Structures are given as C-alpha cells and as structure tokens.
Amino acid sequence: MIKRQLTLLFFFISLSVFSQELYKGQVYDEITKSVHTYSDTLKLDFYTAKEAVENKDRPLLILVHGGGFTGGKRDNPLESEFCKTMATKGYAVASISYSLTRKGTATGFGCNCPADEKISTFKETTSDILKAIDYLKIAGDFNFAHDKIVLVGSSAGAEGVLNTAYLANYPGFKDLPMMSIAAVVSFSGAVMDARYITPQNAVPAFLVHGEKDKLVPYATAAHHYCDPTDSGYLFLDGSSTIIKKLKDLNASYYFLSDPEGTHDWAGLGFRYTDAIAGFIFDVVVNGGKVQFSEEVSQ
C-alpha cells in the first residue's frame, strides 16, 4: 500500500514538473521534420516532437528567414537549429520559403530599388505568409491551436512578419486575407508604418535590434538610410518605434537592444530561445502581460 502511494506521488510530481516545463524548457528529445508544398513551388519544413504530434492545443511558430528578399533559405543552420530547439519545448514549428521577388534583379533591395517595388515586395511576402498559415490550418496533417500562432522573422523575414501582424489596415494591404496573430518575434526588423498598430491589433512582440543597424532602422528612418533623392527612399519604423507604440497602448513586449549593435542581431537573436519561449508561455499560453526592456551586447 505504501509502495503504491509512493508510486502515485512520484507520478503526480513528475506530471507537475512536466506541465511547468512544457513550452519553456526542453521536454522532448526526438524531433521529426517533414517537407510540404504550401503554394505552387513554395515549401515549408514542419518540425514536431513525436510525443507532441497529437497535441491540438500547442502554439504554432512560423519562421520566416532573412536574406534581403534576394536569398536565404528556410533550412539555414541557424533557422534549423532554432526550429528544433523550439520543437523540443513542445511547440509545433514551421519554417517557410517565400517568393524572393528581388532575386536576380539589377536593383536588389537597396537604395536603387524603387520605393513602390519595396512596398510590393513586402506585400508579396505577407501574402505568402498568409498562404502558409492557411495551408497549415486546413491541410489536416498538423495539430496546433489556431488561435496561438506566433510569427518569427529575421531581417527581411522580420519585416515580413511585422507587416503581417500589424498592417491589416494599411491601404495597400486591405485586399489581403489578413488573419489574427497571437504574437510576433522579430530580429532586426521594421514595419512600414507603426501608426497602424492599434488597440485591436497590438499583439505581443519580442523584438531584438542593434542601435547601429545600417540596413534596417532601429527607430524611424529611411530603409538602408537611403538619401531623399534615391528611388528607394522609404521610411520604416524599427523596433524602438514599435516598442514605444506598444507601450503607449499598454500592450505586452520584450525588447532587447544593443547600443553598439549592428545588423548582426538578425542572426544573434536566434540565441534567445529560452527567453522567447518564456515570453510566449507568459503571454500566449497563459494570457498574461509582460513589459520588459534590457540592453544587451554581443
């Protein structure tokens, strides 16, 4: 009888520890990856722990890689390792390819790329992200909570996820089938216009940015710091401006900034898997509020 009671006690203690670590610590070891075509030739990699594959209440993380809309891959080493790590914590994770609309163009995505073409590129990326979400929701091969979708992006991908999360009412985006997002994670990203962040769409944000980023503005400035005479002159609102807006709206945020940091933080942000998991656990899983800012360094 005593042995049976001790066994039950151990079981309940183990169950309690498991529930506390799920979505925060490493719970699983064996991760599987499957490849799927979600639109035309665009593919995504879906990562899941074998033991969590039937969990319909787990959050889904969708990762959008960087590369200036001219390159980059969904299965780069940093992206792959991030996906595996988050899957060990119990999340469903998808890393997507998207249309690299500036690949092979003479102007790339810098100051010689006309501003209207930059806006079209942003819109095309958001369109692809929405297609990936729609596919994952209706394909039937994936289990996750449809109201717990978190977008994660680096550099160009960060611009893509921020625009998708916050620009439902932006004039050029109104014809897109925008969807509700539970939270957004951005490494060195910016949004086209933070004024479109409202009480209705101010979803929690985990942002990482270097203050000396010369490609994607840390605050509000021209993309790539182009001159007003350049055809690619387009103002963007970076992480600092987005955080100020979220503060004004009393929304949740987690902000890591490096006073000496450059665009390198587009890659360095991937190291913060534990902090990201803790933030998602607090604001998405538990529905709590987090407002945290900290200076960091490389």
Rank of each mutant, 00 (worst) to 15 (best):
W265P: 07
R195Q: 14
G210W: 08
T85Q: 10
Y23T: 15
L9E: 08
I149E: 13
H146W: 11
D248M: 05
S127T: 14
G287L: 03
T273G: 13
G25S: 08
F292Q: 03
S154C: 08
P228E: 05
F10Y: 03
I31G: 01
G261R: 06
K212Y: 04
Y98L: 10
A251R: 01
K103W: 10
F122R: 06
K123M: 13
T48K: 14
V290F: 03
T101L: 14
F235V: 15
L151I: 14
I276T: 00
A251H: 00
K89H: 14
S154P: 02
R74F: 05
K103S: 12
L22V: 06
A168R: 15
V27T: 00
N76Y: 08
S99G: 07
D282K: 11
S19E: 11
R58M: 09
C111S: 10
C111A: 08
S240N: 09
G267Y: 12
T121H: 10
A145P: 15
L249A: 00
A277E: 08
Y91D: 05
F281P: 08
V296M: 06
Q291A: 03
Y98I: 15
I119N: 09
K212T: 15
A115D: 08
Y253N: 02
F12H: 04
A87E: 07
F235N: 05
T262W: 02
A165T: 12
V203T: 01
E51M: 10
V53I: 15
A190K: 03
Q26Y: 11
T70P: 02
S34N: 05
I243S: 02
R4H: 12
V191Q: 03
I181D: 14
K245I: 00
A132H: 14
T7C: 11
H263L: 02
E159H: 10
E79K: 09
S297N: 01
K118Y: 07
G157T: 00
V191I: 13
P171D: 14
R58V: 15
T125W: 11
Y218T: 01
N55W: 13
A49S: 03
G108N: 03
A183V: 00
K247N: 04
K56M: 08
V53Q: 11
F122K: 07
M192S: 15
A190E: 03
V64R: 05
K214T: 00
T37C: 05
A183C: 04
G66F: 09
Q200T: 13
T273M: 04
T273A: 11
N112E: 05
D134I: 15
D75N: 14
V185N: 12
N286L: 08
L256F: 05
N112I: 10
K174G: 11
V284Q: 07
Y38K: 07
P171S: 12
I276H: 07
L100H: 03
D128K: 09
L63D: 14
A92P: 05
Y38R: 08
K148S: 08
F69A: 14
L8H: 04
I181H: 12
I197V: 01
Q200R: 04
G140L: 13
D193S: 06
P171G: 12
L236E: 04
N286K: 14
H263W: 04
N112S: 10
P171T: 01
T262F: 02
K43D: 15
V284E: 09
V152H: 07
